[in-house]
Design a protein around this nucleic acid. Structure first.
Lengths: 250, 250
DNA sequence: GCAAAAGTGTTCTCAGTACACCCATGA
DNA sequence: TCATGGGTGTACTGAGAACACTTTTGC
């Protein structure tokens, strides 16, 4: 890639893309492959995974950088995004592999990265579309990773676990129409808890912003069709802030 | 101020210092004066307030920068600090006064700032000590401010209001020994709510990490002396995370 | 003895929790 | 008709909320 004249060489944005996968029932992270062979003897120098990121451009707000990176990676726009932490340790790119890579890619060795996470459903992204070799990995079973990206993912995941209890970010991980059992699964997997189905339903149904779609039912492979619901942001944002804060799960 | 060769010219840290003042019963922010006269006609060009900040040094972690800035401003160390957001809008230093100031201080016009907030009691800081002209202002009654610093304070304050409900950051704003009525006042002022005194006491006293100091009482100007309490971090951190998350006020 | 702040108890309501069986469907 | 996942009701417990008076002290 040629050097872009307008990038800010010591400032990058890294994106942790979380995708919920209802088939495997897991919370996944989208990673791209980092691979390098030695010019001389073809020995593999680097073979691991990293988050997707890019440098900030001179005339660009940081949020825009994050949006741009994600658009390029997934083709998607308008997703929930959260700028959650800056990683600026002077040694964060200083191990052997990372230095080789930084040299190859013309990074500044003292690059500070602003980390974002995004929430979506894994099924929204078609991995073939992208030129980068991107793969989903369960957040609890990640591969060997470069830079400090494992730390970044860990921090992002911890932040999400808290936000799931206090904000309605869950609905960015769900399809527009979902069943209550799907919603329960999602909570159970992300928080690593088990919930009582009857109590969960009871609680959910007290929330005015979770509205049943009376006319539609979902057909599984077989079995009883189930009621679909949707999340109404309109209703949700009409509630007082305090209601939202004090609610715990859902 | 001479140019320091090792600063990173496009990266700064700004510190929002919150201090709780029990005399005025207000949550205050520590600001420093920004003043400039025209060389030619002595007309006042800039006369407002800003947060305290400084550029990040080449071999310094960002947290260290924040700690260093605060130490210089207040003489204090080991305070609760939270890196809460990055402000990187390309136009954030672009209004007239800010450009004049940036030129005078040799800033990069596209400086990205990493914002921290700190919590302490206003009485811990002696404002005379510092060479900068620093003043406390109630967070609900701030003066005219430079740059985007009003936005930064607003965001910090919103973050604190949420954290007060989910984490025990309140105790960083309180003296080591405090009465229950003082604690209640602090909650009421920060969250802008009123609480029932009997219910508040009842709830607080169920918390094992709030321990009465049996031997000591506080003497007000007159009137009945009151029981002092302290917050035990030891006890608090032995409780499960879940207990901590689910609790609301206190 | 009075002004000022500290401290105290009870009742009610509602939300959370524990717990086990029937229902609708497609094969 | 049966295997599979969807869906339901009740009783108990504990926390939150409403509410007004007594106590201790210095002056």
């Amino acid at each position: 890639m040629p050097i872009q004249p307008q990038i800010i060489p010591n400032l990058s944005v890294d994106c942790v893309v979380f995708g919920f996968d209802f088939d495997t029932k897991s919370l996944n992270v989208l990673l791209t492959k980092r691979y390098l062979e030695c010019d001389v003897n073809q020995k593999v120098l680097i073979d691991d995974f990293v988050l997707t990121g890019y440098h900030v451009l001179e005339n660009e707000d940081i949020d825009q950088t994050a949006t741009r990176v994600l658009k390029e990676l997934t083709g998607l726009d308008n997703l929930y995004k959260k700028q959650f932490k800056v990683f600026g340790n002077p040694n964060r790119l200083m191990n052997e592999k990372d230095r080789i890579w930084a040299q190859k890619e013309n990074f500044n060795e003292r690059t500070i990265t602003i980390a974002y996470y995004f929430l979506l459903q894994a099924s929204e992204v078609s991995l073939n579309d992208t030129k980068r070799e991107a793969h989903w990995f369960p957040v609890n079973n990640l591969p060997v990773m470069g830079f400090d990206h494992l730390d970044i993912i860990t921090d992002a995941y911890n932040d999400i676990k808290i936000k799931v209890l206090t904000e309605q970010i869950m609905f960015d991980l769900m399809p527009i129409k979902f069943t209550l059992n799907e919603l329960q699964s999602a909570y159970e997997i992300i928080l690593d808890v088990t919930l009582d189905n009857r109590n969960f339903r009871k609680k959910v149904l007290t929330k005015p912003y979770i509205v049943p779609l009376q006319d539609k039912k979902k057909v599984g492979t077989a079995k009883k069709p189930s009621q679909l619901y949707m999340f109404s942001k309109d209703v949700y944002f009409k509630l007082t802030e305090k209601d939202a804060i004090i609610s715990t799960i859902i």
